[in-house]
């Protein structure tokens, strides 16, 4: 079972994760209005900006984060922002949405000028997250674990980051054992998705480069 301290940490992270979401009016725009490819791209860019702001607010609530060296805080957020965004988007895509919404969202992304070679791995990732049937607690913890990755470029005090990440990993492992007792590999599979996220992050960097070219 989770210790009292671990339960408190879990509740805190889940609350912070649920509290910090993309503003509803912006999310609604994705479904309601029609845009041409360029406007579509601009909307997705605004979404990404809002996503980063929300991510920073969530991260500030992770116990101990604000006590880290300020430049290390920035290095962690810079290194993980794209991965955390993909995780959150995967959660949106695997959630049961009203009829037709998934298609509208998918269509919008496909018509944003992003080339197919980048879109396919992204939707494959969403699918692989969907197959895990992750609980909201697992999404919140996995996002915190992604952000608190000590091996990001320019992080000076990796040991300090590890001291924050380790308890999260322990809580996630215990939570997985408790909630998925019939699937002993569940925790390992979750960690495997972090490797996929790293690959997507690299794809994303290439995608930005190709956008700049065009």
């Amino acid at each position: 079972t989770l210790s009292q301290e671990q339960q408190a940490l879990l509740s805190f992270i889940v609350d912070a994760y649920n509290k910090h979401r993309i503003p509803q009016d912006m999310a609604k725009k994705l479904l309601q209005e029609h845009f041409n490819a360029e406007e579509n791209f601009m909307l997705l860019t605004d979404m990404a900006t809002s996503h980063v702001q929300v991510l920073v607010e969530f991260t500030k609530n992770i116990p101990g984060f604000q006590a880290l060296d300020h430049e290390d805080q920035i290095a962690l957020l810079k290194g993980s922002a794209v991965e955390a965004m993909f995780l959150r988007s995967a959660q949106v895509f695997t959630r049961k949405m009203p009829h037709g919404h998934t298609e509208v969202l998918e269509d919008r992304i496909r018509k944003s000028g992003i080339s197919e070679e980048f879109i396919t791995p992204m939707f494959n990732f969403y699918k692989s997250i969907g197959e895990l049937h992750m609980l909201p607690e697992e999404h919140a913890l996995l996002t915190a674990i992604t952000i608190l990755t000590p091996e990001r470029p320019y992080v000076k005090d990796q040991a300090a980051v590890e001291r924050l990440q380790d308890p999260m990993l322990e809580v996630l492992q215990k939570f997985c054992c408790l909630q998925h007792s019939s699937e002993p590999q569940h925790f390992a599979r979750l960690l495997g998705r972090l490797t996929e996220l790293r690959t997507l992050n690299h794809h994303h960097a290439e995608m930005l480069a190709s956008w700049r070219m065009s």
Partner: peptide
Amino acid sequence: PASNLGLEDIIRKALMGNLEE
């Protein structure tokens, strides 16, 4: 790269400010 600077700018501003206020 410019895009990375953009990301860093957003992060720095968000770290200093408070969206909830």
